[in-house]
Design a protein around this nucleic acid. Sequence first.
DNA 1: TATATTTGCATAACTAGTTATATAAATATT
DNA 2: AATATTTATATAACTAGTTATGCAAATATA
Lengths: 319, 319
Amino acid sequence: MNLFERTGKIALGSRLRLLSSRMTDDATKIYRMYELELSPNWFPVLFILSQDGAKTITEIAEEIGHSQPSVTKIVKEMTKSALIAKHPYAQDKRRNMVALTEKGMAAAQHIIDVQCKDVDAAVDALLAQANHNLWEALAEWEFLLDQKSLFHRVNEQRKLRESQKVKIVEYSPEYKEAFKNLNEEWISKYFIMEKEDYKALDHPQEYILEPGGKIKVALYDNEPVGVCALIKMKDPEYDFELAKMGVSPKAQGKSIGYLLGKSVLEEAKKLGAKKLYLESNTVLKPAISLYQKLGFQKVAHRPTPYSRSNIQMALVIED
Amino acid sequence: MNLFERTGKIALGSRLRLLSSRMTDDATKIYRMYELELSPNWFPVLFILSQDGAKTITEIAEEIGHSQPSVTKIVKEMTKSALIAKHPYAQDKRRNMVALTEKGMAAAQHIIDVQCKDVDAAVDALLAQANHNLWEALAEWEFLLDQKSLFHRVNEQRKLRESQKVKIVEYSPEYKEAFKNLNEEWISKYFIMEKEDYKALDHPQEYILEPGGKIKVALYDNEPVGVCALIKMKDPEYDFELAKMGVSPKAQGKSIGYLLGKSVLEEAKKLGAKKLYLESNTVLKPAISLYQKLGFQKVAHRPTPYSRSNIQMALVIED
DNA sequence: TATATTTGCATAACTAGTTATATAAATATT
DNA sequence: AATATTTATATAACTAGTTATGCAAATATA
């Protein structure tokens, strides 16, 4: 069986490279057949100059999707072959206006009138023989990858898979140590532990659960890797505070924060909460964006026992 | 507008290269994300060794479609990373059996079990979003190009286009010189001019046309570039001999010989001929294959006035 | 107006492959 | 058995691009 059928889609890059090198090799032969003394890789530059007239090297590079040094090199070669001439640009001495010479124009005209037509016809005949249109498929991929890169897409898949291995469970005393450690880790990394922290982390039973709050624990391979608390508030406006969310840096990239948040939100809904509150600090950018993703929005400042808090957010729970 | 839409299919190679380099760049990032210390271009070697066990460098190169030096290089790098070990092969000291180490096996297993799955899922999702299936299209192109290369296909188109500029016309005295020159050119290149040649080439009117034969001339840009004669035979078996076919080397690659042959065959049919004959020499390989393409088949030797003739062919004209 | 930043281009060093060629071992031929 | 050819691998030189970096000119900013 074909290598690519065996490896699967992961070899798509290789497969494209192989086909493209095959085409490039044939291109060399094709150019030789038409007896124009030019190298196939000059074509994009030749074409763009024949259509758009004089251009700077940087403009050409942008237009044809090459790097600037690549165009510099091609222009140098084409200048040597007298297809191109450089014209200094009075208004801006850094720029070199690059334009086709008479010979260059003639070559471009010939290649466009004759060679392109033959190649077009040959490729069209090939496309007609195939069930799946390669040309259109390439255009679609360019478009889709512009919107979201392959890296981005693979990363999403990875997260999805990893997050399926994460289990969110109810707090029980066996997680007491994890609850403290996972929070202490980030708090002492960015700030310092405060009195209020010790109260809640050392005595979750008394300070969180008994007053009517909840704690959720994220397990990965049965190890606790994330925690999040829902703390009952004595406030006419808010029912609960989302707090003490900590995720192990070792377990990042598995959407654990999101899964914990979602689970806590569900819990709040079950408990009949109407509005949730949280406090954070703007240096914790990933946390803030997670809160936004969960639906929290910034609210005006209100008194807080934590000195690290410089942003407050709220979420209205919908039915 | 997109460059590729402007240039047309001639830039297919460029388009493939650009997409493949985009994929390769992302592949580097993807490999980094999975924190396996391996380079994406090692993958085909890693994969094939994990599936097929030990192999020589040349075997791997063949399997994955790379050149042997490319595999030598990859194997060297992978050996340095302790993924691969070389085992001398007792029966043949030139060979190096290359196999994965424990570490290599583990890396392969991980990449196949985890990374490939994520990439597969991401690519499948992409393919599902597109109307034209890139993966299938690539497979089809590989198959179609195996059958006939792009160069071959473009050459066919060029010939087709060029041959449309060729006009086949009836002989008239203005072409007398061309008739002689075009034949003398090839005869004196491969053989020497014989008495019979001078008779026919110096006096086409008397020796060919008046006895009931025909001469056709191929014009390109209104210049005679090819000639072919149909000579009446005094033979119970054959009606005409196809002879004195000459095409200018400058006008090759335009299917002129074929067009002349077809035209002469049509003429013979009009004249009620049942069977045609020709004599040639096996050194003239393109001519022999042209005659075969026209339908002529080799027949047993019969007396001939030409010393250069070492093959005889015949064609039965169908109604 | 002096200074900092940005821009356009050239150059160097790198990448991932290629073809051409050298060398030694194995195999075929005389 | 000696010699010629083929095969397996290594190495060198090339290709067509890339990124990184430096320099000078132009533009923005203090």
